[in-house]
Structures are given as C-alpha cells and as structure tokens.
C-alpha cells in the first residue's frame, strides 16, 4: 500500500518559503495515502496561480489547465473514467473570481470529485492585487485606497448552491486538514474544501497569527450537527466564515454519476466504442 512518500516527486515547488500551500500539498499527499489510493489511481487537476502549480508537485497524474477552469477539466476527466480519483485545486482567484461560474455549477452538479481551494485572499503570482476574498478596505496594488467590494463568502455560497460537502481548514493545522481532505475523498459526491493558506509575501493582514486568533473549530461549538444545513449556515454567518472542520455534509443525496440514466457503470474508457451494425441500421431507419 502506498504511503504519503509515494505521492512525492522530485520537483521543487516555486512557492515562497513559508507559503501555506506547502502544507496543503502535504495534507493532500497524506490524505490520498490514508484513504488507500495508489499514485496512478489519482489525478490532480489545477488552475493557474501560485497554488495551481500543485498538480506538478504531487506524484500522481496531474493536469495544470487554464485559469479558472480546473473544475470543468476535472469533471470531464471523472466522467470519462469514473474509477479514477480526482482532486481539483486552485486559488481563491481561480475558484471565486474567474472560475466562480464553474464553482457554483460544479457544486450543484455534484459529480464525485474533491475541490481544494487554497485561499490566501490575495493575487500572489501577479504580485499583489485584490482578490474576491480580500476584505473590504484591504490595501493592495489594485486597491490603493482599500478594497471597495466586500469579501466573497465561499462557505455561504457553497451552502446556497446546494453543496453536499462543505469543509474549511487552515494550512498549519495539517492533521485536521488531512482529515478533512480524507473525508472529502470518501464523500460520495462533490466535496468542497476551502483552506486558509496564508500568502507570506503579499498578505500582511491575514497572517498565520491572525488566523490562529480568529478561527474556531466547529468541533468546539456545543451541539454542532454538520448534517444540519440551517445550523451550518447560521454558524458560518455568525462567525463571518472563520470556522474550520466539516461545516456541512449530506450523505443522503447521490452523486451526479449515479443519476445519469444510461451512464456506463464501468469507465467509459473501458467500453467498446464501436456501434454494432444492428445499432447503426436502427439509427438509419429512424431517419427514414
């Protein structure tokens, strides 16, 4: 059985020293090993940005796509080969700005993949512009007078869009994060995991210390029931999204693949794709 070391490769990440993404990478590697995947059974699909490089740093099949489009690529891949384990990942700009349309619809669609967002509340690779996750008033190169727009609330959006699995982690809490990703991988449907992954170079507000001071674990909320969507929404709103843990999970709803009529139970990559002469003639006659 593979260990997390088998998910390592020899590529040196080009992230800044201290970047939160290192821990996210480690958590994905550990979670993949813990749930029993072999490296060849996993594909990591990522977007563009610092975090988008992650697909190249994990010893698994990796697809580094275009900005904002990790999710449709990952969903297409899963539809092609339903036996493959698919993780999509990217940053907050990737998932909540340019790719927001895909994020909401992927959540609604509920294809059985896991989406890990590395949320640093800033555009890092382009050297420090505001992100949809930057707080109002946040000063960046593109918002010298402070961000005017309010910060987007990914957990609320996910819950509203009909998510069946919503979790949030913090990159330094690697044990918790690993457990969250494991739970996401085991979830039958689309699992959405937002991870606070601080940018040590451009975000001097939402730092490791800031998160340590402000985050609450749902496990510490008395009587928290992650299967209760209303309670989840309330907790998220009350905490202004500064929660970690499994915020919400619906184990009843079946995934998209289970609902598509006629969709092959064995991967499409393994079926005989030729039409029989009988099928061909039947189609021909339908046009006559």
């Amino acid at each position: 059985m593979a260990t997390f070391k088998d998910f390592r490769n020899d590529v040196k990440p080009n992230w800044c020293p201290g970047c939160g993404d290192f821990s996210v990478q480690a958590a994905i590697q550990r979670a993949a090993a813990n749930v029993g995947y072999e490296p060849n059974e996993l594909a990591v699909v990522s977007g563009i940005g610092c975090s988008g490089r992650i697909s190249g740093y994990i010893n698994s099949y990796g697809f580094h796509g275009i900005h904002g489009r990790a999710l449709p690529i990952a969903q297409g891949l899963k539809m092609a080969n339903r036996d493959l384990k698919v993780i999509a990942s990217g940053g907050d700009g990737d998932g909540f700005a340019i790719g927001m349309g895909h994020t909401i619809h992927a959540i609604r669609r509920n294809i059985d993949i896991t989406y890990v967002v590395m949320d640093n509340q800033i555009y890092g690779l382009t050297k420090g512009q505001t992100s949809p996750r930057s707080a109002a008033g946040f000063v960046t190169k593109s918002t010298p007078g402070g961000a005017i727009e309010p910060s987007l609330k990914p957990l609320e959006v996910a819950l509203t869009a009909g998510a069946t699995f919503v979790a949030q982690g913090f990159s330094t809490e690697i044990k918790e994060l690993t457990a969250l990703i494991e739970a996401g991988l085991n979830h039958k449907g689309f699992s959405f995991i937002n991870v606070f992954s601080p940018c040590v170079t451009y975000n001097k507000v939402n730092t490791y210390d800031w998160f340590k001071e402000n985050l609450t674990k749902v496990a510490d909320i008395e009587g928290y029931d992650s299967s209760n969507r209303e309670q989840a929404m309330q907790a998220v709103m009350q905490s202004e999204g500064l929660l970690t843990g499994i915020i919400y999970q619906d184990t009843e709803t079946t995934s998209y693949q289970e609902k598509v009529s006629g969709y092959s139970e064995i991967p499409l990559t393994d079926i005989d794709i030729s039409l029989t002469e009988e099928q061909f003639d039947k189609l021909t006659k339908e046009f006559m």
Partner: peptide
Amino acid sequence: LVGGAVIQTEDEIAAATMAIGANYGGV
C-alpha cells in the same frame, strides 16, 4: 443507449474544457 453521457454546461468555456478533460481521460 451506448453507456455515454452528455452534460449541459454552465457556458461554452466549461463545455470545451470539460471535453478536454474527458479526452485526457481517454474517452
């Protein structure tokens, strides 16, 4: 009827990239 599937996507960008993902997968 032949085991396949169609996804009506949220836009054409998703349509093309999803098709790329599936082709990469081997279908």
